[in-house]
Amino acid sequence: MKSLDPRINRVDLEKGENAESNMDNFWESFEVFHQKKTGTAYTHVGSLQAANHEMALVLAKEQYGRRQTTTGLWVAKTSNIFGLEESEIEMFETTPSKKHREAVVYKTRDKITAFKNRNKDA
């Protein structure tokens, strides 16, 4: 994945014939994943620049962990994250008659059943 960090793009844009950026040699873009509560899923919260994984974690702590409860942090190099191209997203388009394939219907039914059961007990 290409970094969305504007500083990285700016470095590319400004790269003239002789321009050499320290960022290119030393700093890399990392993606940060944050866990709010033990046992829950890690959520992607943003990116940052660091020289290695260890430093990425140290900087992520202040950048993303300071304003909320934190039970875990992950970092991964942006370049190690692989995703679909925008043009490939088409493959998820489906015909309306096949909506039953989308599991959301079942999830909703589970919720309704749970709600009914709760009210029955009350």
Binding site: R7, L48, Q49, V58, L59, K61, E62, Q63, R66
Partner: peptide
């Protein structure tokens, strides 16, 4: 030296 480090050091 960098935005991230600025935040961490200031904090």
């Amino acid at each position: 030296p960098t935005l991230e480090e600025d935040i961490a050091f200031s904090s």
